[in-house]
Computed example of a mutant assay.
Amino acid sequence: MQISPHVVSDVMTRAVVAVGRDAPFKDIVRLMERWEVSALPVLEGEGRVIGVVSEADLLPKEEFREGVPDRFTQRQRLSDLARAGALTAEEAMSSPAVTVHGTTTLAEAARIMARRNVKRLPVIDGEGKLEGVVSRSDLLKVFLRDDEELTEEVRHDVVDRLFPLSADHIRVEVSEGVVTLTGWVDSAELVSVAERLARAVEGIVDVRCHLAGGSGVR
């Protein structure tokens, strides 16, 4: 049985396009278009991530093309105004980069993306060197796991472990990622735990728990 990919290193993209700090503005745009990405890690030395340059970092050059805005906008958009004059990756990038390690859980990576409003995260090792990139689409790969694989994992990691005495009386069915648990259990107090653990299996969309025990039916 294949183990669920619980961490970033299981789903990240390892072949990554990156730029150095001196990369010219137009080269950055060309790379983004060629590789169909919205952001590029900026590296120095032997591959240490020092920042990320994104489409949002480059757009001020076009936005403020017609001249300096009013004073209110200037006060509110100082960093964007500085980026409008950027000629290199170092001048345009956001730094320090928002990064994760390969051992970061997928749930935590998703929280970081949502909290920091980014679509991609460079993945670094203990020395800050680039190992890969994880994107929103990478985090969604877990939902491509087939129902049979999910059924086996819920059976093995949830049912067999929580209810060794009554596992034969429990039916596990998964359809389109939705798992249904039905049957009799010897420990009714563990039913809520079973539901929570089944929901935590990577790729499960929802849980329908209909397990009966000594204290009644859920």
Rank of each mutant, 00 (worst) to 15 (best):
V123M: 02
V118T: 14
T105R: 13
P96T: 00
K141D: 11
T73F: 09
F72H: 08
E152S: 14
D147Y: 04
L140V: 12
A110L: 07
R83N: 01
R111M: 12
R111T: 13
D125L: 12
S95T: 11
M93K: 00
L162K: 13
L139M: 04
T151G: 14
G128V: 07
D160R: 05
T104L: 02
I170Q: 13
V100C: 02
F72N: 02
R75L: 15
M93H: 00
R161H: 12
K141N: 11
V134Q: 10
E149A: 14
A82E: 15
S137Q: 14
E153R: 13
T88N: 09
A110P: 05
G85F: 06
D125F: 08
V98G: 00
S95H: 13
R120V: 00
S79Y: 05
R145V: 10
V123N: 07
Q74V: 15
V134K: 05
P69Y: 03
D70K: 07
L162F: 06
A114D: 05
L165W: 14
D168E: 00
I112Q: 03
F163Q: 03
V98Y: 00
L87Q: 14
P96K: 10
E153G: 01
R115Y: 09
T104Q: 04
P164F: 01
L87M: 10
V100H: 02
D157T: 11
V98C: 01
G102Y: 05
H101Y: 13
S94T: 12
E152R: 15
G126K: 09
G132S: 04
K119N: 08
A82L: 11
R115M: 06
T103K: 01
V142T: 15
V159H: 11
V154L: 01
L106I: 03
M113V: 03
L150H: 07
T88V: 10
A107I: 11
E90M: 07
L150C: 12
P164I: 03
D80H: 13
S95I: 01
L130Y: 07
S137M: 11
L140C: 08
E153S: 07
S79L: 12
L150P: 01
D70N: 12
Q74W: 09
A109L: 03
T73G: 08
V118H: 14
E149I: 07
D125E: 12
L81H: 03
L130T: 12
P122H: 02
H101D: 13
A86Q: 03
E91Y: 09
I124Y: 09
G85S: 11
K141R: 13
R77C: 15
